[in-house]
Design a protein around this nucleic acid. Sequence first.
RNA 1: AGGGGCGUGGCCAAGUGGUAAGGCACCGGAUUUUGAUUCCGGCAUUCCCAGGUUCGAACCCUGGCGCCCCUGCCA
Length: 564
Amino acid sequence: MTESTGQLGPNFIRNIIDEELAANKHDTVVTRFPPEPNGYLHIGHAKSICLNFGLAAHYGGRCHLRFDDTNPIKEEQEYIDAIKADLSWLGFDWGQHEYYASNYFETLYGYAERLVEKGLAYVCELTAEQIREYRGNLIEPGRPSPYRARPVEENLDLLRRMRAGEFPDGSHVLRAKIDMAAPNLNLRDPVLYRILHASHHRTGSDWCIYPMYDFAHGQSDSIEGITHSICTLEFEDHRPLYDWLCEAIGIYHPRQIEFARLNLTYTVMSKRRLLELVNEKHVSGWDDPRMPTLSGMRRRGFTPGAIRTFCDRIGVGKSDSVIDMSVLEDCVREELDTTAPRAMGVLRPLKVTITNYPEDQAEEFTVPRHPKNPDMGRRTIPFSREIYIERDDFMEEPPKKFFRLGPGREVRLRYGYIIRCDEVIKDPVSGEVIELRCSYDPETAGGKLPEGRKKVKGIIHWVSAAHGIPVEVRVYDRLFNVANPAGDKQCDYREHLNPESLGVLTDCLVEPGLVGAQPGEVFQFERLGYFCIDRDDTAHKRVFNRVVTLRDTWAKLSANNLNR
RNA sequence: AGGGGCGUGGCCAAGUGGUAAGGCACCGGAUUUUGAUUCCGGCAUUCCCAGGUUCGAACCCUGGCGCCCCUGCCA
């Protein structure tokens, strides 16, 4: 069992378990993470995973991985493999406890016959539409199916013939006999088994009847000895059925506890919408770095530790909540700040010629890989007459408090010399600034400041023109431009897609020390943010993803000034 | 004859009758060869509202109000 990096804080579920333990209701805690293999895991699943595995770890129990594979039409092996990979990546180990609801099909069927024999279930021949009509609605009670009073023997015969494949899809279902007038619609004789002549990804053609969620989930929990079956709020209405079925069948009865699912600002979390984003090509795939999927976040450069910290930090409750994306970003920055080696990279290059630096000269600065962690060692960065700096670090008419480069101004090149901007060269046609001609002060190498020389406030990053490696950098912004895209009843969530969520910068330059870096490696480009090498990276075309920017007080300040 | 849940600062969240933790965000300020990091300080006389019980209420009681979920042979 892998421990989460953070702490699973106190929450109402822990309080419940503490009380039960104090009352000697259990001697161990067994939880489970039960995905349906019909899609990819997202950050919402991570919350459930951290909760279930976290509780098991906290109480010294265990957590099972169980695939809820009761609907062969929607499920595939591909998803099982992807889910396992994501779970491992997140840092959780389910050991030998890998289970499948489909492994219990025979047992489940036995439970069904038992219910029939007890007179608690019957075979119904109403069509799906008729069943809906008979069910009534939110304020009117339902009516009993004409097949409700069928004798036990007839039900048993019919159920066996359903299993034997004598009937076509949709012709018969097995229903629990509960209460057609129950205020909780789930209790109005819910369907337990349906006929589906479909091949199952694990059981092939062994079965043509498949149990519904309500007749598989709790039963699987029971079979595995799950003590606490933790699910999301929308299943609260199913709990009475969960309980009824365990009692009716007469099996061990786990306790279902519901918590609020995760919502994050500026993204969507439902499988349906995520699938639409992929199918309609609004993103490049499930692992598009803008997606809230674990595979997307992995490709983006988010770390498992940051996601675990996030899940621990947001807590677990029962009130519908929307967590601000900044919480996640903070977790990512917190981890990467301590682990990412520093480097210099220029995203939007502006050429600078150091006019008083000899043309045939070059030198190397040896500098730390990390400002606070000497154990990470040192690196060398070449310096020469021509360098590139960030366009944003020069302004022809600098506003107040801008302490970077401008005509006649001085800045320090990080780890290098102080330079002064003597001349601004513009494109004669467009008027665009295309080059800065500067002079350097040889006395200021490596942070030195000669007696009496005024300290410069601005420090900017740079890359030597002759030595830099050209790279492509993909900069990501929020996928949607409103905080709650799915919450707008006026229009479709897709109308809130941020057209600028992906920016591709093709003229970037990074320091030559990064030649050998491999896909997945993360660096901090000083003053800019964290960047990881994408899996599209090749020797001919190096590709970085921007994981997240650094906090930018200047950007905030100038934005505030603009608003005034 | 509707039922089930939930309301603590901008966003989360602890708190379970003894006088409102923490994080994110935000606002100051110090240190800094990253406008980063770090560090210090500020940020709810009040817990959806109104009554009541109590020496004492976010916690207990009553009555309102608001929001979410439920009418698949999906999970």
